[in-house]
């Protein structure tokens, strides 16, 4: 209780640290002892406990808040660079160099806070952008606020003035893809080859035209035509450097893909572009049926494993010695 170490455990421990007497391990409180020791804490003690809880809560909130205060360039790198460059040309989204000159800040802020909403409102400029991006809408940037939007625009403005911005975008190689790249990409997609940084295999969330058996996951969109949708090699590669959707970002933020892995994946995605996308309905039926089969198997398996569960020593004994069944 009067411990000096300021750890959550020390703060929250309800009782005195146990005395080191070895007997103490053996002598646990009986029912009465335990009940009364908890219930009968004095008011003074309760007050102390309350103070400790409050201090703790304040500390926690403080740390949580500071974790939000990451600086704007980092934010841009993690959330925007998958679709945009500053002075590096168009990816999925437009090049942001001098964007503040093309449109006024008020509009830009509104768009940043809710891209989908602005597009859907029928705003002509937003519509044009949407079409230019081949109908890939801009996802709402995670954790965006008016304040953050203003900071982002400041950053873009400042970077636009530079000769070469730090956000010019990655240099994507132009060497043609080999069969080896495609095979490796497929292995990464299927998860048979692990990702170097420990990211999740694509198949967990995405389906694909040529995936066997149960098909890919249904959380994300089908990837068969992704190469075409995201406008080719450079934008797709850039997307994979830091996937920007709210679902993918937390997964890959700490487990980024290496440039080699990206190259292989893009090679694979390119090879499937012309195919019709996977028909997910077949996968669902297989999934349902195999689930049912598994359940039936499980029932019989457990039934045989626990076949003795209705066994009774006494009844067996009596029946064996009287030859008379129970009524």
């Amino acid at each position: 209780m009067r411990t000096k170490r300021f750890t959550p455990r020390a703060i929250f421990s309800l009782r005195k640290p146990k005395s080191p007497t070895p007997l103490c391990m053996v002598v646990l409180p009986g029912r009465v002892g335990l009940a009364s020791s908890v219930a009968a804490a004095t008011p003074v003690k309760f007050g102390l406990r309350l103070v400790r809880v409050c201090v703790c809560a304040v500390l926690w909130v403080a740390t949580a808040a500071s974790s939000l205060g990451q600086d704007t360039p980092d934010y841009f790198r993690q959330n925007c660079m998958s679709c945009h460059t500053i002075g590096g040309g168009r990816l999925t989204g437009p090049d942001l160099k001098d964007v503040t000159k093309r449109k006024d800040r008020e509009w830009l802020t509104k768009f940043l806070l809710n891209p989908r909403g602005v597009i859907d409102s029928g705003d002509p400029y937003a519509k044009k952008l949407f079409e230019e991006a081949r109908n890939v809408p801009m996802p709402t940037p995670p954790g965006i606020t008016a304040d953050r939007a203003a900071k982002l625009l400041d950053l873009i403005e400042a970077e636009s003035k530079l000769e070469t911005s730090q956000f010019k975008g990655a240099q994507v190689s132009t060497e043609p893809f080999t069969d080896q790249d495609r095979a490796k990409g497929r292995a990464i997609y299927l998860g048979t080859q692990r990702l170097g940084a420990g990211g999740t295999a694509c198949i967990s969330c995405h389906s694909m035209c040529d995936v066997p058996a149960l098909g890919g996951g249904l959380l994300g969109p089908d990837l068969t035509n992704v190469y075409e949708r995201l406008k080719g090699r450079a934008p797709l590669s850039a997307w994979l450097v830091a996937p920007g959707t709210e679902t993918m970002q937390p997964i890959f933020k700490n487990h980024p893909l290496s440039s080699e892995e990206i190259n292989s994946l893009v090679a694979y995605f390119e090879s499937t572009t012309a195919q019709p996308p996977a028909d997910s309905s077949g996968g669902q039926v297989t999934f349902l049926l195999s689930g049912l089969a598994g359940a039936v198997f499980g029932v019989f398996f457990l039934d045989s494993l626990w076949r003795r569960r209705f066994y009774s020593v006494r009844r067996t004994l009596v029946e064996a010695n009287t030859g008379r069944g129970r009524s």
């Binding site: 103490c24 009465v32 002892g33 020791s37 219930a39």
Partner: peptide, 19 residues
């Protein structure tokens, strides 16, 4: 009981609270 709590506290408080 000394190993678990202060004996005088125990003596004074036994029987109080909800069991």
């Amino acid at each position: 009981i000394e190993m678990i709590r202060e004996p005088h506290e125990q003596k004074a408080e036994t029987g109080f609270g909800f069991v």
